[in-house]
Design a protein around this nucleic acid. Structure first.
Lengths: 106, 106
DNA sequence: TGCTTATATGTCAGTTTTGACATATTATTA
DNA sequence: TAATAATATGTCAAAACTGACATATAAGCA
């Protein structure tokens, strides 16, 4: 994994292991993170396309503005379940979700 | 939603609301459940294609046989995160995951 | 510039998900 | 048939995730 990418992930709060095994992020771990970041991005785009504020989306899915912010920031404390439920609440179809997931993140 | 399908879901342990609003499962809720069941199925197929037992898979992902069984049974206590991580551990690519998700469940 | 709205970040108690365990049920094979 | 392997089901303490809140920072506009 490239140094730049690792930095990006670490800045978002992902713990990629101790300093000694920073370079050992497995392909599966990387794919999993990629996948969540793709969902994050997709969520942000969908919300903005609807001219909706984070607070409005929070109301829609009975969550809070801060959690929406964390979702869109790719915070590791957010589950895929919540990301997907949010996308669906914004009108995404299963195929839309699939497309978001298949998209490579960089 | 069809009666037969609802029964199927309820038999797996999904709580689809009280008797009065059994028919009001929203499209989003339905899509979310469908999506998880598709991942379940995909996981089971992948594992079996590799001639791997649930115990072996459990070891591989540092989980337990009982949790694998729950994943494959579509138990509502299992997160999408765990399902996806497991698929990736079995060698699925992001595209494979996307395909599983896009697949309609019945 | 100040004012307002939107987004980001940190914390935390309540809830959900977790691996592990015991044990039941169902194949599979001798 | 018995014995063994595989899968299913129920429970629980620990770990992870959650909405909510406070508050910081940023963006837009008068």
């Amino acid at each position: 994994m490239k140094q730049a990418k690792r930095k990006k992930l670490e800045s978002r709060g992902w713990k990629i292991g101790s300093t000694t095994d920073l370079l050992k992020l497995t392909a599966e771990e990387e794919a999993y993170i990629d996948l969540k970041l793709s969902l994050s991005e997709s969520l942000k785009n969908r919300r903005q396309d609807k001219n909706m504020s984070q607070s409005e989306l929070a109301r829609l899915i009975q969550s809070s503005q801060s959690r929406i912010a964390k979702m869109e920031a790719g915070d590791p404390s957010v589950s895929m379940d919540l990301l997907v439920k949010s996308l669906l609440a914004l009108g995404a179809s299963k195929k839309d979700v699939a497309k978001a997931i298949a998209a490579s993140s960089d």
